[in-house]
Amino acid sequence: MPLRLIFMGTPDFAVPTLIELAARGHEIAAVYTRAPKPAGRGMDMQVTPVEREARRLGLPVFTPKTLRIEEAQEAFRAHDADAAVVVAYGLILPKAVLDAPKLGCFNVHASLLPRWRGAAPINRAVMAGDAESGVTIMRMDEGLDTGAMAMIDRLPIGADMTAGELHDALAPLGADLMTRALGALERGTLTLTPQPEAGVTYAEKIRKDETRIDWTRPWAEVHNHIRGLSPFPGAWFEFNGVRVKVLRSTRGEGTGAPGTALDDRLAIACGDGAVRLVQVQRAGKQPMSADDFLRGTKVERGTALS
């Protein structure tokens, strides 16, 4: 028998799960997402990707600013849900909300818990040079991603894979895994396993002050930094007073003073080894290949980037 669900999510990453739950015939009593925010040059109010999809599906949408007040909690309980599905919602769920659905609140988390609990698991996994990532379905508790695990699926991280590419691979994986978990929940066969105490790491939110490229680091760390911040917020350097984001890189050849061009094709020396810049983006411009960038900007051998 299909479940009566509350769906809670905000960004693009959550949309495949919402679509899959609707396609599987679950009754989605309510969709909770963040309130619209002004964006763009005109600062027009922009709804979230989840709200846009929910409206397309004809589902009721709720955008409370907080769930900590009694009025919001009573409204949540009134949906009389069997379970809540949470995917990158963005608001803290207090105990009264966690306890409201009959079978609990279940979260799609984009890491192999307990590694990378927290806000930016995809970015941090790539920045750390992890060989694999994945999705964990957990039953939520009051801790920060500390709930008991229901299912895990793994995905290798390629040597040049960016955070954006990993994001796009994990989103449908999470949707599929959640539908499988809910199927087991319907049948009464879902098994929950406490997270191990060993191997806990935290994926802190990306700070602006860590986005600038530090060429003195070893090439592998520079490369992981670049791909872990691509496409957003983007790792960057300055050249001739202009900020340039690097969206894609790979291992380069040669050695030299950190930040120095080793050829005329954007091989840049690091503290150990070199990276080759493959795709870049000038401030205010569209992303472009290194070849296209070099057609308009001369970066000769020996040029120093800052």
Rank of each mutant, 00 (worst) to 15 (best):
L229K: 10
G134F: 06
K205I: 00
F232Y: 15
I122L: 08
A184T: 05
F239G: 02
K208E: 13
G183S: 13
G164R: 14
M149E: 04
A131R: 14
M161H: 07
F237G: 12
D160G: 10
D160M: 08
A169F: 00
A125N: 09
V126S: 06
R212S: 04
I213A: 06
I137L: 05
T189R: 15
M138A: 01
E210K: 06
G164W: 09
A181M: 10
I226E: 12
L192V: 11
P194I: 02
K205S: 03
L190C: 06
M161I: 12
T162S: 15
D176N: 06
A184V: 07
I122N: 09
R227G: 00
T136A: 00
G158I: 03
G143S: 06
P194D: 10
H167M: 13
L144M: 14
P121N: 00
S230P: 12
G129S: 05
L144T: 07
K205F: 03
G143H: 00
G129V: 12
A119E: 04
A159G: 06
R154Q: 06
P196Q: 10
T191L: 14
G134Y: 04
H223R: 15
P196A: 02
D176R: 13
G228H: 10
D209H: 11
T216L: 07
I206L: 09
A169K: 11
V200Y: 08
G174Y: 06
I206A: 01
E132Q: 13
V135E: 00
L177V: 04
L155K: 08
A175G: 10
T189Y: 11
M149C: 03
L166M: 09
T193A: 05
K205D: 02
L229M: 14
L173Y: 03
E238H: 13
E165A: 13
R212Q: 12
T179S: 15
P218K: 14
E204Q: 11
G199C: 05
V126Q: 04
T201Q: 09
P231C: 11
T136Q: 01
H167Y: 15
Y202Q: 12
I226C: 10
G183P: 03
M140A: 01
E132K: 13
A131C: 03
A220V: 15
F239I: 14
L173D: 01
D176E: 12
N240C: 13
Y202A: 04
A119C: 00
A169H: 05
G164Y: 12
K205G: 03
A120L: 06
W215S: 01
G143R: 04
V135M: 05
A203T: 01
D214K: 11
A159D: 15
T146I: 04
G147I: 06
P196E: 03
L155I: 04
E132D: 09
